[in-house]
Design a protein around this nucleic acid. Structure first.
Lengths: 118, 118
DNA sequence: GACAACTATATCGACACTAGATATAGTTGG
DNA sequence: CCAACTATATCTAGTGTCGATATAGTTGTC
């Protein structure tokens, strides 16, 4: 029952975009999303539990991600883990957000506010 | 008395980045910032008064912008207008935010979350 | 095998950001 | 004259983020 228009969710909260990036390559559980985000950003972005789990709850409600009913890593037996997967709608929302970010950068360059490549 | 480290202000709120873009080319008063933002984004971003004026207040406190003591457009006599100018610190903060946005886009591309150019 | 550190999820309160409504008042155009 | 527009400002409600706290299972090490 996801929202049909990704545009209506823009701008995506920073934490939400980081979760989408973390889930793009593979299905992950919450703690793995935290670790991946920290590693990917060289420690610059550390999602706190409050930020992460409230973002996950909202993203499930909005249909950006779904919770898996089965453990995709059967060799790991930690029953506490809850795995999440990106939905097609989540991917569309990420594309829309990326377009918005590109547009912001393009405008910042056009006015001479910032230098550098596209 | 501005904060010395622009990094500590990141991520900049969306409204703040739009105000910085609007002030990059020329000094403007609040209402002009609203109009410029609306025109630049093709009507996609409409800063509401609540958003704009609370952003301006914060940006003054943080030293991202300063209020001009003189009217830079002497041919216009509207005494209600209050003009603002980008500070060097504001420009540095914009550069830092732009770098952050580029990094987010780069990561989104690297994972295959989104397609398209840098 | 005791203990610390780490893994993992979850909730709470405080604070920050945004939108929309409301207020006030000067300016412009028909 | 009146409406629409210009211009700034405040308030409330809803959302997003952080840090603290809680709970509990797992791993490593001495």
């Amino acid at each position: 029952m996801p929202n049909l228009d990704p545009e209506s969710l823009l701008p995506l909260p920073t934490a939400v975009f980081h979760v989408l990036i973390a889930l793009a390559g593979k299905d992950r559980h919450g703690y793995s999303i935290m670790q991946d985000t920290s590693a990917r950003t060289g420690g610059k972005v550390e999602l706190s539990p409050g930020t992460l789990y409230s973002a996950i709850r909202r993203m499930l409600e909005q249909g950006l991600i779904q919770e898996l009913s089965e453990n995709p890593e059967p060799d790991n037996t930690d029953e506490r883990r809850r795995y999440y997967r990106l939905t097609r709608f989540g991917r569309r929302a990420a594309e829309a957000e990326a377009a918005r970010l590109r547009s912001m950068l393009s405008q910042a360059r056009a006015t001479g506010l910032v230098t550098g490549r596209p």
